[in-house]
């Protein structure tokens, strides 16, 4: 992949991630659930992880809801947040708020696995360094079943080889990502670095556009 000027790392690069998971086997998880609108008032990108899944995670008086998965210590590694979120189909639908992806990243996740992602969420994730991995519904079920049997089951997400593996059984499946985005994720580059390198082409193109 030929990217001209690769200036700086915009986010952590992603290569192979072998980690335990948090299961969220619900469909149509929208970005209003991931981060409710009333937490969008910041002018800086800081601290969104505290309000990740706010209304599913906390009661109105800020006490934790015990039955929500993020409050279940079984799904932490001795209290440390896990890096892979496994979610039901159509994850990230609704509002375009990138804050949803920020909250997931800030909480500690680096990868979300689902059988189907909403478009804008998927794009936002890739832009900030979360890898959205789309697997078949059957393979998603296998991951959920494995985690149910053993909450510490590990999954390996191999970006260079575009492959996701259930570590215990070795079962695996390939996933798609375009070459350009893959290169960016492997290196922690973002699109603005690329676009800055083609400013003169853009300026020329703009001449023929109505303004």
């Amino acid at each position: 992949m030929n990217v001209k000027k690769e200036k700086k790392m915009a986010y952590d690069s992603f290569n192979v991630l072998k980690a335990t998971c948090v299961p969220l086997p619900l469909e149509n998880v929208d970005t209003d659930q991931i981060i409710p609108a009333r937490f969008l008032k910041a002018t800086k990108r800081e601290g969104f992880g505290d309000n990740l899944f706010r209304d599913w995670r906390y009661n109105g008086d800020d006490s934790p809801k015990v039955d929500f998965v993020l409050n279940n210590t079984t799904y932490t590694d001795n209290g440390t947040p896990r890096k892979i979120l496994v979610a039901g189909r159509n994850f990230g639908s609704g509002s375009s708020r990138e804050h949803a992806a920020w909250a997931i990243y800030d909480y500690g996740f680096r990868c979300v696995i689902s059988s189907f992602f909403a478009d804008i969420f998927k794009g936002n994730s890739l832009n900030i360094g979360i890898l959205p991995v789309t697997v078949s519904p059957e393979f998603l079920d296998k991951i959920f079943t494995a985690i149910e049997a053993n909450p510490n089951a590990e999954v390996e997400v191999d970006l260079p080889n575009q492959k996701v593996t259930l570590v215990a059984t070795g079962e695996s499946e390939g996933f798609d990502i375009n070459g350009y985005k893959k290169h960016n994720m492997l290196n922690g580059f973002d699109d603005i670095d690329y676009l800055q390198s083609m400013k003169s082409e853009i300026a020329e193109f703009s001449q023929k556009q109505t303004s």
């Binding site: 794009g123 936002n124 603005i192």
Partner: peptide
């Protein structure tokens, strides 16, 4: 179409956005 904040920054910086054709 709607975009995320990284893309808002992209458009401010370059008047372009990077999208696969749907």
């Amino acid at each position: 179409f709607g975009i995320g904040t990284s893309e808002v920054e992209m458009v401010l910086a370059s008047q372009c956005i990077m999208q696969p054709k749907p």
